[in-house]
Simulated assay, not measured.
Amino acid sequence: MASRLAFSCALVALCALNAGCGGTGSADGDQLPGLPSDDGNCLESDEGCAGSDGDGSGSSGNGNSDNGGDGPSAKPLYYIEAGEITGEAARKPWSSWWYPIWEKTMFEGEGEGQLSPLEKYDAFNRKVLNRPTIAASIERDEFYDPRAETWAGLCDAWAIASILEPEPNRARQYGEVRFEVGDQKALLLKTYENISKLPLIGDRYDGAWDDDYDDVAPHKLHQVIVSELIGNRQAFLIDEDAGPEVWNAPAWKVISQIERDAENDELVHVRTWLFLASPHVDDHDFVGTIEVTHEYTYDLEGAWEGSRFGVRSGVWTERSRWDHPDYAIVLPDQIKRGSFNRGIDVKTVDLILGRGNL
C-alpha cells in the first residue's frame, strides 16, 4: 500500500512481540510519513513525525515525552479539520480465546476422551500424515507456567492473526480427527507467536522510574487513526492498558469529534470512540466479533491555517489522563509466521485450516 504509514527505526530500537499478551521492548523516535488526503485530514511530512525541529523524543516539548517538534515555529506533523470523522477497517477482526499460559487448555483436553488443540494436531500428524509429533508435550513441558502473570498469553498473536487472516468458521474432519473452530483458531494463533520484530508507536510502560505514563501521546495515536482507519481502512493494534499489564487488541473502527477552542487558536478538543475486538469469549468455538468501545479525550496543540489545523503535539484530558492506550502497532502487509513450539509446523497448520491439498 503506497499510502501506508512507514516506520523507520534503528535495529536497537525495534521491539519484539514476545510470547504473552504483548511486547517488552520500545521503539523511540518512530517516524510517521505522510498520508495525503482531500478532506484536510492529512499527514503531511515525508520526513517523519518529528518535522524539521524535533526528533520524536520530546526533547523540547511540553512535558509529554512523546512530543517532538512542538515549538511555536515547528512544522505541523499533519492536518485535521473541525467536525466529526469516522472510519472503519475493510475487514473486521474476529474474536478468539487468548490462551493464557497458566492454563492447560492448549495441550490438555478438559474431559475424558476430549482432546486439546495440540493433541489433535499430534493425532493429525500421526494418523493422517504418518509423521509423529509431540507438540502437546512440548507445550506442557516448556511453555506452560501456572505461576505466570495473569495477563500473559496469546492476545498479541490473536490480535495480529485476526487482522491478517480470514476467520476459521466451520469444523474440519480428517478421518478420526475433528478440528472445531476453536481448535483451528488455537493452532493459527500458535503460528503468530514467534514473528519478526515490530516497531511500537510509543513505548511500553513497565513501571520503571523513567517510564512516561502519558505515552503514547494522543497526537501520535490520532495520526495513526487518521492514516489507518480513515485513510487505508486497515485495523491496527493498541495495548489497551497504559500500565505494566499488556492487553493487545485490534482497533477496527473510530468515531472522532474535533472541536475548536473558543478562546485559544492553538488548541482543539477531541473526543474519540475507538472500537476494538475482544478475546474474552465464553465459547472457544465462537464465530464473529465481540465488540468493546473505549472513549478517549485529548487536546491537540498547533495552529489554524485557514480551515485546517496543523497538529504539533497533544495531551490527554479528563479520565484519559490515566486510561489510554500504552502504544500502537501498525502491521505490515505480510508477516513471516512461526511458533516457539518446535513441534508445530506452519505448513501443517495451514493444511488443517484447509489451505492446501493433503
Rank of each mutant, 00 (worst) to 15 (best):
C15Q: 06
E81P: 08
G207P: 07
G68R: 05
D183I: 03
T105P: 10
N130S: 11
N341H: 13
R337Q: 08
G356C: 07
H324C: 02
G83L: 00
L221P: 06
P132C: 11
P199Q: 04
G61Y: 04
Q257H: 14
V246A: 08
A262P: 07
G20R: 00
L5F: 04
W151Y: 13
V177A: 02
V224L: 03
T191N: 03
G29N: 08
N62K: 12
Q334G: 13
S26T: 11
I138H: 06
E180M: 13
D38L: 15
S320P: 02
L14F: 05
E119G: 06
G343W: 02
A16F: 14
R337P: 08
I195P: 01
I352H: 05
E112C: 14
H222F: 12
S59K: 10
I230V: 14
D39P: 10
N130Y: 13
Q173R: 13
V346W: 06
A235M: 11
N125Y: 08
R91C: 08
R172Y: 10
D210N: 12
E44T: 15
K127F: 08
C15L: 13
G54N: 09
P33W: 11
V287I: 07
P199N: 06
G22N: 03
E142Q: 15
L118G: 00
Y192I: 00
P100L: 05
F179R: 00
E245L: 15
L351T: 05
K120I: 06
